[in-house]
Every structure is written in C-alpha cells, then in structure tokens.
C-alpha cells in the first residue's frame, strides 16, 4: 500500500541527515506505528509522504502511485492529520469541513453521512457553528480528524494523533483506526505513547537519527531485545 524506497532528506547543505536511506513497505489492512525520540525524523518522513517535503533521493508510492509524480492522484486517496492542527481560525468549523469536502470533491450524500457520524462521535456537532479561533487544541484536533475522515481515505496518516484528545475521543480514534484496517485500509501514525503503539499496531518501526533501527511485530521486536518485556524497555534499550 505505502512503499518508501531508500528515501533520504537532509537539511543545511546536506550536513544534517534528518532521514537517512529509509525503506518501508506497509501492507493494506495494517496499522503501522512509527516511533522514535524527538528529532529522530518521524515528522520529516511523514511530511515527505504527504507532499510537504520533497525527498532528496528515493521514491514513495501509495497504491503504486508515485506521490511525487502524480500528486493529485495520490493525495485523493491519502488523508493527513498533522501534529499541530493549524487551520483557518477565521472560518467556522462547518465552513472548514465543507471547504475540505469540496477540495476532495465529496458528493452530498457521502458528506452528510460522514459528517453526521463523526461530528456525533467526536462530540463537536454543537461547536461547528462557531469560529475555529474559539476552539481548544483538542477540539481543533477533532475537527481536523473529522475533515480527514470525510473522503474515506485508503491511507490514513497521523502525526501524534493522541496529543490533546480527551480519553473518550482517543478511544474512539483507536476504534476508527481498527475499523479502517478491517476494511482493508492502511493507517500509518507516529506516536510517543508506547502503550497505544503496543496495543494497537500490527507492526512498529523505530527510527533514530534518521535511520530505521527496528522494524517488525511486537513479538519480533521482543525477540531481538535483551530485556524482553514491554515496548518501553525495548525502546529505551534501542535508542540509548
């Protein structure tokens, strides 16, 4: 579904390698967790997949569509939720949602169905008539999540999605991710919450200093670590 082939990205005249020859092959129906310490290259990698940063080398394809060769085609099946939901705060929530809907060209019926479902689920139905400027961080996050789910994406990419969400919404989001996988869609997300990764992910990759240092199912990761306990132990051991 999502294939990263030898992608690298460096900043500052190539002196700092943010992402160094990363390859990943993520299958349909998989929830893939992307872990790593601060500044390891998680967000950079994600930005290259969604079209916000051009890789120096390597290719990225979604459903066999090269995201940098045919960006429109690729973007129409991807949805992205950034770590910091900076959205047009002078719009009302509903205006923003409709704007996103228009950009994906989502037909009326689907739009209404999806909106009713997710607004109810995230408990922001009463707020979408208000200016986004008046929202809390968590509410903005929920608005962006709703907008990202409108187009029924084949690949759902989230950067630190649990930050700022209340327990119920965070539970709901996990449910959504599960359901999407059951429908054969792919979820790719970065997180610092190791318990979430441990419980939710089919496979996990750990990135450090721009390189993938571990990749596999929880079982596989455990079998390689000295202290075969929790993901926290493995993570600490690997990123020392």
């Amino acid at each position: 579904m999502l294939k990263l082939k030898n992608i690298s990205k460096s900043y500052g005249k190539g002196t700092i390698k943010a992402v160094d020859d990363v390859s990943l092959d993520i299958r349909p129906g998989e929830i893939f967790g992307f872990l790593g310490p601060n500044g390891a290259g998680k967000t950079t990698t994600i930005k290259m997949v969604v079209g916000l940063l051009k890789p120096d080398t390597g290719t990225i394809s979604v459903n066999n569509i090269d995201v940098w060769e045919e960006p429109l085609k690729a973007k129409s099946i991807i949805s992205y939720v950034p770590d910091n939901p900076e959205v047009y705060d002078r719009l009302k929530g509903i205006e923003y949602l409709n704007f996103i809907g228009d950009m994906y060209g989502i037909p009326k019926e689907q739009r209404q169905r999806k909106l009713e479902h997710y607004l109810e689920l995230f408990n922001i139905k009463d707020a979408v008539g208000d200016l986004i400027a008046s929202y809390s961080h968590g509410m903005k996050q929920k608005l962006v999540l709703t907008s990202a789910l409108l187009n029924d994406p084949k690949l759902f990419i989230l950067d630190e999605p649990m930050v700022g969400l209340d327990p119920k919404s965070s539970f709901n989001l996990k449910e959504i991710m599960r359901n999407m996988c059951n429908e054969g869609k792919t979820v790719f997300f970065s997180t610092h919450v190791l318990e979430v990764a441990e419980k939710l992910c089919d496979r996990i990759a750990i990135i450090n200093n721009g390189k993938i240092i571990a990749l596999g199912t929880m079982e596989e990761l455990r079998s390689h670590a000295v202290e075969r306990k929790s993901l926290e132990n493995i993570f600490l051991e690997l990123t020392e």
Binding site: N98, K108, Q112, M139
Partner: peptide, 20 residues
C-alpha cells in the same frame, strides 16, 4: 475569544451537504 460553548448558529442538514 469566548471559548466555544456551541452557542454559535445551530447547523442543519443543509449545512452538512453543501457542495461547491
């Protein structure tokens, strides 16, 4: 900016399915 309490105009079905 008066924290959103859902006091804004209630939205109806028409708002949910406006296609442009």
């Amino acid at each position: 900016v008066s924290a959103s309490k859902g006091k804004g105009k209630k939205i109806d079905n028409k708002d949910l399915s406006r296609e442009t």
